[in-house]
Computed example of a mutant assay.
Amino acid sequence: MSSTRRTAIVAGVLFLVTEIAAMGGLALYRPVLHDTGYVLGPGADTQVFLGALCELVLALAVTGTGAALYPVLRRRNEGAAVAYVCGRLLEAAVIVIGIVCVLSVVTLRRRAEGGTSTDGASLVTAGQALVAFHDWTFLFGPNFVLGANTLVLAGLMYTSRLVPRSLSVLGLVGGAMICASATAVLFGAYEQVSVAGSLAALPVFAWEVTLAVRLLGKGFDAGTDDTAGAGARAGAGAGLGAGVL
C-alpha cells in the first residue's frame, strides 16, 4: 500500500470520527446547555464528562485531518495546505475552550452541592455566562472556522482534482452556506440551534461524510498515488534516455 493510499484511509477515518464525536458530545452535555438552573439541581455530571470526552476526541480528530492531509495537499499548493492545517488547529482550539466552559459549569454545581457557596442566584448567573461563552465558541469554531476550512480544502481538491469535482463542489457549497448561516446567527436572524441552522449545516455534513467514504473506498483520484507518480517519472526518464541514444 502506497503512502498516499494510507493517507487517504487515515484521513477518511478521522473525518468519520469528527462527525460521530461532534454529535455524541452535543447530545451528552445537552443538559448543561438547556437547563438554566443546572448548577442548583441534581445534575448529570457523568453524562457531561462523557460529552466533554467526545469533544476532546473531536478536537484531536480535527487536528488529525489537517496533519494527515498535509503531505498530499502540500504537493498541490503548499500555501493552501499550511492554511488548512492552521485553520484546523484554530478550530480545535476553539472547541477545547468550549469544553472548558461546560466543565466549569459542573464545577459550580459541585460547589453549590457541597455548600461551598450559598449564593444561588450568583451561581446561576455564572453558569449562564459560561454557557453563553460556550455558545459563542460553538458559533465561531464549528461554524465560521469550519466553513473557512471547508472552502480551503474543497477549493484545493477542486483545482487539483484529488477527488471528483462534483464532490468538491458540494464542499464549496457547504462551506459557503455554513459561513453565511453563522453570519445570520451572529446578527440575530435566527437561533444557532434551529431548523434554519440545521439545514444550513447539512451540506457540510454531507461533504465530510461523502469525502470520508470516498477516501476510504477509493482514495485520491488516479495520478495522485506515489507509485503511479514514480512510474510516470521512470517512464519519462526511460523515454528521454532512449531519445538521447
Results as ranks from 00 to 15, higher is better:
A80K: 13
R88H: 09
L162P: 04
A228Q: 14
L167M: 11
S122M: 10
A182W: 01
D135Q: 08
R110S: 06
N77H: 14
T183V: 14
G127M: 06
S2L: 12
T107I: 09
M1Q: 10
L90W: 09
R6K: 15
S117A: 12
V62H: 02
V244H: 04
D119K: 11
V13W: 06
V106T: 07
A206V: 14
W207R: 01
N77Y: 14
L153E: 08
F205L: 09
A132W: 01
A189Q: 05
A234Y: 13
G147A: 05
Q47W: 03
T7S: 05
V204H: 01
P203G: 11
L89N: 07
R109H: 13
D45Y: 14
Q128A: 15
R109E: 00
V173H: 03
G197N: 07
G87D: 09
W136A: 11
V96M: 13
L103D: 05
A112C: 05
F49A: 08
L14F: 02
T18L: 05
L14T: 13
A189F: 08
G219S: 04
A234K: 13
I97G: 02
A129I: 12
V124M: 03
A236G: 11
V163Y: 02
G51N: 05
V131T: 13
F133N: 05
P203D: 03
A52Y: 01
T107C: 06
V173L: 11
R165L: 04
R75V: 05
G87L: 04
T118P: 08
V185T: 07
A206K: 08
V100E: 02
V209P: 00
T7N: 05
Q192T: 00
G237R: 15
G127W: 09
R6N: 15
L139E: 01
L170F: 07
L211I: 07
Q47C: 07
A92E: 02
